[in-house]
Structure formats: structure tokens, C-alpha cells
Design a protein around this nucleic acid. Structure first.
Lengths: 172, 172
DNA sequence: CCAACTGCTTGCAAATCGCAAGCAGTTTGA
DNA sequence: TCAAACTGCTTGCGATTTGCAAGCAGTTGG
């Protein structure tokens, strides 16, 4: 509900919707963490988003068409948030941002493994990932390959590797 | 100078630096508009950034290593802002964001022509553009082709086309 | 029937934003 | 030579946004 009469530049319009500290974090958790409920997004966030901010961002993302919301059949109070095609189409943006971040910022190895895979896979892998997201969030047919599983598994392994690496040196 | 103890995720760290309404706007004007002085960035901005915000963002971008500043030999008060390699490396991020914006948001045709060219050119064109930025902002040798000139010219033509299109229908 | 869980709201202090005005020093043009 | 325009940037101040904690009505499971 903002009418900040600014320019029709694609970068500017994108920033008017996504240019804050939390919108892309929420979308990232929905997209890569497959978190679909409010509480999941609230509690399992690595960054600890505040509940009122989360509610506000979900509302704005809904209004702007990046996500949709439907009721959960298994629980009358639960809502399920899904990515729309508009939200799914952000995959290349995430891939570019993540690749830039891992190259120039002090990222941790576990958190950057998925960025690395996406960067190496290139647009072809992004397409496969988007196909999978269409299956998970829209009603598209299930694709043959699960990129999300691969990303999640790679992350899990990286965390595991880190934990063992932290535990063993004490013996030496 | 923020210590908001958040996660080591590349997306998160990127947002901690660039996740606001103005940082990327400033970088966009330096990169695509070749605006190198404070006043240029202040006055020629399509979005009308406030002077204190601009000063703050330039400071933060400097601190974070995205741009550098040197004195202008021709004017004792002028400073020249340049992109660093870190800033130049944002080209793919801009290309992805601009392409997404032009596909899903109400952009104006003139403002999206450059996004279109960058999207069609793909990574190969981005590399050439980055080479040119290295020439303009760092001390790299001049590349054979000027992508910036091509982008600027395409934009100029789009504006021209729009103006004539607005002027002629009155006769009909 | 109660404890845990659901999505989300409210209050409030602190930080940030956006606008307007201003400022000391520099350059330009008549 | 001197005033006007320009330089990068700061200051004040009201309005908005943020972040934190607590709470709330309704739902579910044991």
C-alpha cells in the first residue's frame, strides 16, 4: 500500500518490493528450506526474524503476488504459504546474489555449499530447480530429479563434516 | 559498523550490506549511468534520493569495499567514486534482478530496454561489460567494445522513440 | 480437560528515513 | 575583483519503521 512515486526502472521497482532486510530472507526459507507455515518460518530461521516483521512481510509478499496462501486441511488454524511463478522466478536472482556473497563476504562453508552448487550448475540447473519448485508449490508434475534434495543433502553433509572436524582435533 | 550477529549465509550477508532501498540504486547509477560525483548522484537520480541518505550510503559502500573514492584533480572539493572489483562483480546480480523486474513488474519500455539487452546477451555480454567497467573504474586496459555505450544508446533511442510516439498521434 | 501449539496482534522504545535548510570552501564569469 | 553558482556533505526534526517482549483467541492431542 505504498505509493512512493518513483521510477519505472526494473531495478527500482524490484527494490520497492524486495529492497529490505527481510523479504528475501523469508523467500529464501520458503524456497530452499521448504518452510511453508508461519511458525516454521518464525522459529527455524537462522536469523531470528521478529513475529510482527514476519507477519508484515508475508502480507506484503502476498499483496505483491510473490507467494500465495491456502488453508491447511490438517489443521484449521494453519496456513500454507507457496511460491507463485513470480516467486519461483527469483531463483536466478538468488543464485547470483549467493554466488556474489560467497565470493566476497565472510560466509561459513556449510552455508555456502548450496550457493556453490547452484553457481556451478548454472542456468541449466536453475531451470531444473524451478521445475521442482513448480511441483512443490504449484500443481506441476513431479520432475525426475530433485535439486532441492541434492542441495539439502549437500548442506547436511557440510554440517556433518564441520561437526566431526570440530570434535576430532581434540584427540590429536 | 553493524554487528547484528546474524548467520553466515551468503544471501543473508549480502542483504546485510545491500538489503535496503537505496544502496543498489546508488550502485546502479554509478555502474550504468557512470555518475561518479556526489552531486551527479544526487541530482540526476530518477528516484530523488535525499542528500543525507546518499552520504550515508556512500560511506557504507566505501566501508564495505564496494566502491572507492579519490580526489578529483580538476576540483579541490570534488571526489570521484569508483567501483571496486567487488562492486563490478555485481553485474550478474543486477542483470538477474533487472530481468526479473521487467518480466513481472510494471516497468516502462525505455527503462527496461537495457535490462532486455543484458538478458539476451547473457553471461558473455556481462563479462564484456565488466571488462569495460574495469577500464572505467580500475586501471584496466580499454576493451575493444563498449557495452555501456551500446546500452546508453539503446536507452537514448527508446526515449526518443517514446517522445516521437507521444508527439505524432495528436496529428492523426 | 489441560498443556502445547496455531497464526498473528499490541505496546513501546530505539533506530532509521525523508525532507528542508544550511554551511564552509571553490570555481566561474562578467 | 567580486558576486553568483557550485562543491560535498551536515544538522534538525517530525514521521515511519524496526526489534523485542508479551499476549490472545482458537485448535489439537494426550
Amino acid at each position: 500500500m505504498k505509493e512512493t512515486g518513483r521510477s519505472g526502472c526494473p531495478i527500482n521497482l524490484t527494490l520497492e518490493i524486495l529492497g529490505d532486510r527481510w523479504s528475501l530472507i523469508v523467500l529464501r526459507d520458503i524456497m530452499f528450506g521448504n518452510r511453508r507455515h508461519y511458525r516454521e518460518l518464525l522459529a527455524k530461521s537462522d536469523e531470528g526474524i521478529a513475529s510482527n516483521i514476519l507477519a508484515d512481510r508475508l502480507k506484503r509478499l502476498l499483496e505483491n503476488g510473490l507467494i500465495s496462501r491456502r488453508d491447511d486441511a490438517s489443521h484449521k488454524q494453519k496456513g500454507i504459504y507457496s511460491l507463485t511463478e513470480m516467486g519461483i522466478s527469483l531463483v536466478p536472482v538468488f543464485a547470483a546474489m549467493a554466488d556474489w556473497g560467497r565470493r566476497f563476504l565472510p560466509v561459513t562453508p556449510e552455508m555456502s555449499i548450496r550457493a556453490e552448487i547452484l553457481a556451478e550448475g548454472g542456468p541449466a540447473l536453475w531451470q531444473k530447480f524451478m521445475d521442482e519448485l513448480r511441483f512443490l508449490h504449484l500443481d506441476a508434475p513431479r520432475p525426475a530429479r530433485s535439486v532441492l534434495d541434492e542441495l539439502t543433502e549437500a548442506y547436511r553433509c557440510a554440517v556433518e563434516r564441520k561437526r566431526t572436524a570440530e570434535a576430532e582435533p581434540e584427540v590429536a
